[in-house]
Design a protein around this nucleic acid. Structure first.
Lengths: 343, 343
DNA sequence: ATTCAGATTTAAAACGTTTTGAAATTTTCG
DNA sequence: CGAAAATTTCAAAACGTTTTAAATCTGAAT
């Protein structure tokens, strides 16, 4: 494998000049730069990443720890994130090293990876409220970025969506359609985003002067959404609209609505938040699902770039991104039935 | 972070001695070795892997490319392999870097990873017959190990199970139970192991003087096993025993047997090959499934070690491992019905 | 005391890159 | 033309480790 020295010998230039020529430094003469580039191509030069990393003091590797269930399966989101992150990091000459977390100690895998003394930083995902991993990495002064947030006003780099707006937008839209009994089928409250969604929901309902007694929480799978919706629909003054934490939950909710003999959207409207996972495509619902949409995938490249920038010294406050989800109106929402309810 | 120089300064020793002391070289005095170890612990020394890798000429990273389906899901085997390999490689101070293959060009991802000039070698899995990746890596002279085999008598390092024995053992056992009509529900023939299983089956049937006309191939999922078994059971002189390529296929086959109103094992015996994946546990079948068992997981640490040994110069011929699967007799096999068939 | 062998330690080179500070070259302009 | 300025190149140091070849020390045998 050709090295800088080989090129410098070939051309009678110093190694320093060759290095600068190839790295686009402005002070090298265009003619020598061309010569160097030509020789590099001809000799098939590829920089030795290890040497680069030694001198720059970086390992060029960041860690991602994937939580897997006892049955060795993982969230469907995993490959989505893996694909996006490896691509985003590769563009910054960085590799992703994975470890698997099967245990109950949330920081154990992080500690073990740090002991190997090989990582420049971490990417954290699926945070829980006041995530112990955040505390651990902050104490160890290890750079990281968080996909999501684990608290209000974090002081670390993160990329998240505006989760209050997710539910608030849904409420606003449904209220404009004259819905007055709006239910929220929320995710697990050990996730901070579920708190945000709840808060956004409550505030928005308050603004519209609506009672927000129709809240179910701790749902994750479609079956749980199904059960939650059944219960909500069974009570007096039942909801005419559901806001669902995810498309799988919406799937369960719609099933419950139909099992009750009701129609979507004529009797009951359904809106969900959509991570745009390939398996449960909101557009393939019948009727196509109205959603607040924020593809998980969109987060990957920004996350990769933010971590690299953070490693290069950009302070955390400049690396805090909150994006708004798109509201996409499709067929699963419509005007409230006359009287505001089907009951 | 403390370096060798820090320790050497602390103790008034040379860097060389410190390095040797910590790496267990025999020529260092026990007293100095102890002093060095103490100082290293006290200063919290961790070797800089990047520096080690520069001088040893290794990157300390090997590649694994995971094929994922268009829906972004992957084989259930993936996490099993990922967990085992990362553990096995970690023991040899090596990291696994993943890339995702979503395309149609089988060698593209490998070429792209090589261009980044960062990998010491590859681990290949799920080979197809005459795998183009093998040809590519051999031409590029990139070290790799293969989990499985893609041809007879390979000239590269591999770890596989004796797939002829898998079916041969099953046939032998069933023949001893007086079965004469034995069916094989085999996997896809673009995998070399399916050829081996077929060959083992044919040879063994021949040895027992049995006709081997009951062969289905190209099955992978339980539904395909179900259909294959239905067809086989529909014909005259139907099988009294099934050899299945996997536990999911056995699941489908058993369903078909029962849908035909037959019992396992009284009317029809079923044996499968078992990769010991956590989701489909053979022991949880009803009746518990008789299997040839070779946990996928068992391959991971040997594969990791073989690749590292290969990188260290061990020739390929010394790194070719074929293990035999265990035959585990449980409740799904029994003596052939009187007359050798239930028809 | 001298010599030798063995045990232990050392200085220095090497890995391939980036970067610093200085030197050499070219250009500008009075 | 000559000096100053700007441009371009260079030698050397640095990153942290391993390894080679040489040096030093120890103790025993002469």
């Amino acid at each position: 494998m050709a090295t800088l020295k080989d090129i410098s010998a070939e051309l009678g230039l110093s190694v320093a000049t060759v290095s600068r020529a190839l790295n686009g430094f402005p002070e090298v003469n265009q003619k020598t730069r061309d010569k160097v580039q030509e020789a590099a191509d001809r000799l098939g030069y590829r920089p030795n990443r290890v040497a680069q990393r030694l001198v720059t003091g970086r390992s060029g590797m960041v860690g991602l720890i994937v939580k897997i269930r006892p049955d060795m399966s993982a969230d469907q989101t995993f490959f989505e994130v893996l694909t996006g992150l490896t691509a985003g990091l590769a563009a910054r000459d960085t590799d992703l090293v994975l470890a698997v977390d099967q245990g109950d100690d949330p920081v154990g895998p992080y500690r073990r990876m740090l002991e190997k003394n090989i990582l420049d930083g971490f990417i954290l995902n699926e945070p829980i409220v006041d995530d112990p991993r955040v505390a651990f990495l902050q104490k160890q002064k290890i750079p990281f970025v968080l996909h999501g947030a684990d608290r209000d006003d974090p002081d670390y780099p993160f990329y998240t969506i505006d989760n209050q707006a997710v539910t608030a937008d849904a409420v606003d839209m449904l209220a404009h359609l004259n819905h007055r009994r709006i239910a929220l089928v929320n995710g697990k409250l050990h996730h901070h985003y579920a708190h945000e969604r709840l808060e956004g929901f409550l505030k928005a309902m308050g603004r519209h002067g609506l009672a927000s007694d129709l809240v179910k929480t701790e749902t994750k799978f479609d079956s749980e959404g199904y059960l939650a919706a059944l219960e909500l629909l069974a009570q007096a003054d039942a909801p005419s609209a559901f806001i669902c934490a995810s498309t799988p939950i919406a799937d369960g909710v719609i099933r419950a609505i139909r099992d009750k003999g009701l129609r979507v959207p004529e009797d009951v409207s359904v809106i969900a938040h959509d991570d745009a996972m390939p398996l449960t495509r909101a557009v393939n619902f019948d009727p196509a699902l109205t959603v607040t949409r924020a593809p998980l995938r969109d987060a990957c490249v920004p996350l990769a770039n933010m971590l690299m920038d953070h490693l290069n010294g950009t302070p955390a406050v400049d690396l805090q991104v909150t994006v708004k989800a798109d509201l996409i109106v499709r067929g699963s929402t419509g005007p409230a039935p006359k009287g505001g309810t089907w009951t």
